[in-house]
């Protein structure tokens, strides 16, 4: 089993499924590391960015 299991449906509300795709510092892990297909990586990225806007995920670990 890969560390980067894809969620069944890409959803910004499912933060537990998105968390493997960001680093400890909050960066999105690139597709060449995750090994996810390009179209799936775009969906993951989009969900992460929405979740960040809604303060469900951090932009960085430097938030004060």
């Amino acid at each position: 089993m890969s560390k980067y299991d894809l969620p069944k449906n890409f959803d910004y509300k499912n933060t537990d499924a998105l968390r493997p795709f960001i680093t400890e510092t909050g960066k999105i892990i690139p597709a060449r590391v995750t090994g996810v297909s390009a179209s799936n990586q775009r969906k993951v990225t989009k969900s992460i960015k929405i979740a960040r806007f809604l303060a469900l995920l951090p932009y960085t670990d430097m938030h004060q």
Partner: peptide, 16 residues
């Protein structure tokens, strides 16, 4: 709990 503070709030009441 918010992942980062918004307008000095650390918590938020979410409604969908």
């Amino acid at each position: 709990q918010l992942a980062y503070s918004i307008n000095n709030h650390n918590k938020g009441h979410y409604i969908i």
